[in-house]
């Protein structure tokens, strides 16, 4: 199993109150799966995504990623896991505004310590894969929304991660461009990539093989799409 969550609990303290964002969640995801996580706001899906993406750690429970326990790692160790295992695709693209597409894609490799020549080669290959080989020197503000999201996907792919974690990847795109992006995810899935996608759109979730529905910090349903 690629992802194995055991009794994951996440509590937030707001003033004197404690909010239970996740309550003893058990979840397993295999390598090569295409999973959608759904749920209304406040259901805990963002919290779950942060934990799956190693941006945050659980209050209680065990998270095994690629057979190693990541529940008790410190900031820098988590950064290394994110760099190696996870490719993020965000709703708002989250590209560096002043950097070119190529540089944005190179970024994870910089933190991995890859040499400049190697970095460039790999980033170019990733941009080529998302069909942007003619836009490498453009900055984000010179690109359309769809193109920006494709740069973000290239950035997510460049380090060859175990999981691609997409948070509402079509939320800021029009329907047609959104469909293009979804096709791209499907193609990536067909190549054997593991994709976890957070969304609240049913028709987006339909693209996946498995839909996990959260409510009030619990898994309400977990079924094939």
């Amino acid at each position: 199993m690629l992802i194995d969550l055991k009794k994951i609990t996440k509590d937030y303290h707001v003033g004197t109150q404690t909010v239970h964002a996740l309550r003893e969640i058990n979840l397993g995801i295999d390598s090569g799966e295409y999973v959608a996580i759904m749920g209304p706001s406040g259901s805990g899906k963002s919290t779950l995504m942060n934990i799956l993406g190693c941006l945050d750690t659980a209050t209680e429970g065990i998270y095994n990623l690629n057979k190693s326990n990541v529940s008790e790692l410190n900031d820098d160790q988590l950064a290394e896991i994110r760099n190696r295992e996870i490719g993020f695709v965000f709703q708002t693209f989250n590209l560096l505004p002043r950097a070119t597409a190529l540089h944005n894609v190179e970024l994870p490799l910089i933190y991995k310590g890859v040499s400049a020549a190697d970095r460039k080669k790999r980033a170019e290959a990733a941009l080529d894969k998302v069909g942007l080989s003619d836009r490498m020197t453009h900055r984000p503000n010179e690109l359309s929304g769809g193109q920006r999201q494709r740069v973000a996907i290239a950035r997510a792919l460049v380090n060859d991660p175990s999981i691609i974690l997409a948070d509402e990847p079509t939320g800021n795109l029009d329907t047609r461009t959104g469909d293009e992006i979804m096709e791209m995810f499907e193609a990536l899935h067909d190549e054997g990539n593991t994709i976890i996608m957070v969304t609240h759109e049913e028709y987006i979730a339909e693209h996946s093989d498995r839909i996990i529905r959260l409510r009030d910090g619990l898994i309400e349903r977990d079924e094939a799409a």
Binding site: L55, A79, R82, P108
Partner: peptide
């Protein structure tokens, strides 16, 4: 701040 967040998300450590 946002740039820092992006960099951290994709693997920048404190030291970086």
């Amino acid at each position: 701040t946002k740039e820092i967040g992006i960099r951290k998300a994709i693997g920048a450590k404190r030291r970086n």
